[in-house]
Amino acid sequence: MARAINSEIKAGRGSPHGGIFLDIASRRTPEYIRKRLPSMYHQFKELADVDITAEPMEIGPTCHYVMGGVEVDPDSAAARGSIEGLFAAGEVSGGMHGSNRLGGNSLSDLLVFGRRRAGVGAAEYATKIGERPKVAQSDVDEAVTEALAPFTRDSGENPFALQAELQQNMNDLVGLIRTADELEQAIKRLQELAARVHNAAATGGRAYNPSWHLALDLRNMLLVSECAAKAALMRQESRGGHTRDDFPKMDPVWRKVNLICKLDESGVQVVKQDIPEIPTRLLDLFEIDELHKYMTDEELTRHRDGGSLSDTTAASEGGAVNGVRRETARLARRRRGW
């Protein structure tokens, strides 16, 4: 369905505001709709005076949640990379939800990784660090200069207009369904926008000034957009919250790969990194025929059913070492001509 909606919009057959129509009004009686969808009927009526019993709705793909985020150590929630003392939890962290989050798992994610992991992890780190790192005055001065810059750009651009352009770009080109052409276009446009974002101007004073706030936020929005677009271009498959029209299938080889974004002088770099290997005890919670969908044959040799009879028996007696099992399984599979 998502793909069909996307294709219609891109083919120019969308609704006036870039969506398509969802019509129940012409198909069911007002009484039926009000009875079946009471809260929706009332919500749209109250918020927008949209009467879903009388007119079609204009709907389209809506950005809801980002699975990606700060790469963390699963047990301490400490951020990976070249920095120490940084922790992350909740939507800003990545890895927990893989390529697609289940509804309900985000609230529990906040609790588990916020409390047990990040809060405790940060406290433990603060205890054992010994001498406290020092903030350099020059860094503070630099931060002040950066923060005040939007006030110094007399002929700068309206940050609200820049934000709208950025949002349109991401919506059109890095949205629900992606293609290499569009992603390349998006990255190019983001680079053009970057220069203009550096020229975003705030008008007025410093007290509660939304134009200033937005001018500063744009730096962040631009960076994360670049990450999303570049990583989306690199992953040549479709999986969960990443759908490529030019690579419509899920590919077990790509499952073994995490895409990591880091920043250097030339901007956002995306590199491939091996995904941590799932231990056999957890792999064995699944039926092997389900796992074929996700994993390569080689990986599945570690599954309880991934090898020969003797190998499975040995495992159940607790006498097999993983490496031995793997080798036995590999040989067994070769014998069967897999």
């Binding site: 389209g60 793909p61 950005c63 699975m67 990606g68 700060v70 990443h242 995490n258």
Partner: peptide
Amino acid sequence: GATLINMECIQFHPT
């Protein structure tokens, strides 16, 4: 200096 992971994975609701 931290790294980000899976940034291509974004949940969209089609409707």
